[in-house]
Write a protein that binds this DNA or RNA. Sequence first.
DNA 1: GTGAAAGCGCTAACAG
DNA 2: CTGTTAGCGCTTTCAC
Lengths: 331, 331
Amino acid sequence: MAITTKDLAKICDVSRGTVDRALNGRPGISKTTRERIQKAAREYNYRPHLIASSLSRGKSMAIGVVLFDLKNRFFSQMSNAINLIARSHGYFTYIAVTEKDIESEKQILHNLASRRVDGLIMLPITQGEDFIRELKGLEIPIVTVGNQLSGIPHVSIDEFKAAYESTQYINEAGYKRICFVCPPFRKKGSQNGLFNLYSQEQRVEGFLHYVKKNLKLKYDILTEKDFSPSAVTMLRKEKEKAAFFCSSDIYALELLRNFREMGISIPQDAGLMGFDNLDILAYITPRITTVSTSIEEVGEKAIHILLRLIAGEKVETTNYIPYDICPGETL
Amino acid sequence: MAITTKDLAKICDVSRGTVDRALNGRPGISKTTRERIQKAAREYNYRPHLIASSLSRGKSMAIGVVLFDLKNRFFSQMSNAINLIARSHGYFTYIAVTEKDIESEKQILHNLASRRVDGLIMLPITQGEDFIRELKGLEIPIVTVGNQLSGIPHVSIDEFKAAYESTQYINEAGYKRICFVCPPFRKKGSQNGLFNLYSQEQRVEGFLHYVKKNLKLKYDILTEKDFSPSAVTMLRKEKEKAAFFCSSDIYALELLRNFREMGISIPQDAGLMGFDNLDILAYITPRITTVSTSIEEVGEKAIHILLRLIAGEKVETTNYIPYDICPGETL
DNA sequence: GTGAAAGCGCTAACAG
DNA sequence: CTGTTAGCGCTTTCAC
């Protein structure tokens, strides 16, 4: 059986209060008794019972990080940045993964709330008034990353602007026909419109904003799950050389692979640009032109804001992180 | 302020015991009062206080999953498999990441122990008697995955056998000179020998076992951090065509990229084989020959064993999962 | 500087 | 079927 402060009190012949003072660096105790108790704690391999402590103090010193996916380094880098800072403030982080399942996201949030985490950082996959109300009902400070929820503090890049500028970049590279590839968009409106596609929508909007302002440009949007055949057909049908602007590097990789199989060369036969600058791009030839952010910075900003919320301070709702267009060999 | 069972008791004009019976499906309560209380709980947005519950029951219904890294899909797939099964048994999983830092691993383990998780699944990066003693001192059921710790239940593929058979596979593809690439090995003995390289060691052993039995074979082992230049030099110096067997796909990717830059073609000028079958290989040309496991199966096995340990049952210490050699275009 | 006692919210054993 | 009571281990307040 694990040893408790009660046991230590008996062993050291002091009261539980004194043991607490000794072990938690609280004032009002003599140096000698403190050291005596600390020594006993070490000897008996005392381990604080954080559950009891949490109950008593009303703080769990834990924050939940709710991700929808761990597949790409993006999130792992972000959670590492969060971990580091959280730990330096005495907080432990529980990482939980929703797997892009709305029901699972809900369960995880309620579970973390029941475990009384002191705060939450989440990449939401749900949207809508009901969901926002539900989150507020948890009565826990929350910061979102990526997808946004109206009224809840949020950290991300300015997706709209990034997509706008990327489209401009593609255009200035000489392309007069640009196709935006955004398969997640097909889910728009599914799940009773509950599916949160904010980031993707912003990217589409940014793209549209640019192409519509430049009337000489021709544009398309591909939202099919299996977009490669359509892309190939499109290339073969049109005489102008087109560029494919993918809302994520993953789709750019997919296109690259399929184009290669169909004997279409990049950038000779078509242009290609991605988004996110995934680390695996380093192993891909040709180097894909893409948009990059310091994802660590996103994580750091998110945890800093959360800590301020926990401390009861006011924070900005919208927090943008800088981004860069990374030139490659595919335009 | 959140509502408690005490409040509900007052509201429904019953005792706290009855509220508990109603909310937790315990017997000894009439259908009508149960429903009345459940209704009130819903109305008042009651949320169970899992911290208090844990303290009282002596069980947190949480298990810790301690990973050293989230970078590859390998671990994310595994933790998803674990999550799913754990949840179906009422357990929540806390994922924590050590970032291959021995001190961080220690802290995380102690923290999780202090939070009284009911069990742990870990990919250890530390080894040695002291560490094993420390783990036992936590008095929590533990299952390891990947690296092994003597006496602690463990799930993985038979790395030795997989490496042995892979080497044989390379040999049978016609290579008489095989170089094993295993950069983590350079850390062997560092950190006062605390660094756990069990899996990697088993792979090296399997490789050596095969090449030493076949005396006509020439072999090398590369353990440098920056192994590509040596690999290139080796290729240029020797007349026989060599194959590089990498202890992880990551190194194979690295070699492939460097070889390409140096004008060395795979498989024309050299053979290449990886290990792990990372998902990103799908985007790489040529397709890298590698070894694959059902990582979900590893996760499932690990959580099943852990649940049995938690239930107080006896389990096997060594648990192997099947693997396959995935033919590619690089040999 | 130290001790005693009440309490965090829930559970479980026992009475009725 | 329902209520009462005594904890779980730690923190905190107040008294000495």
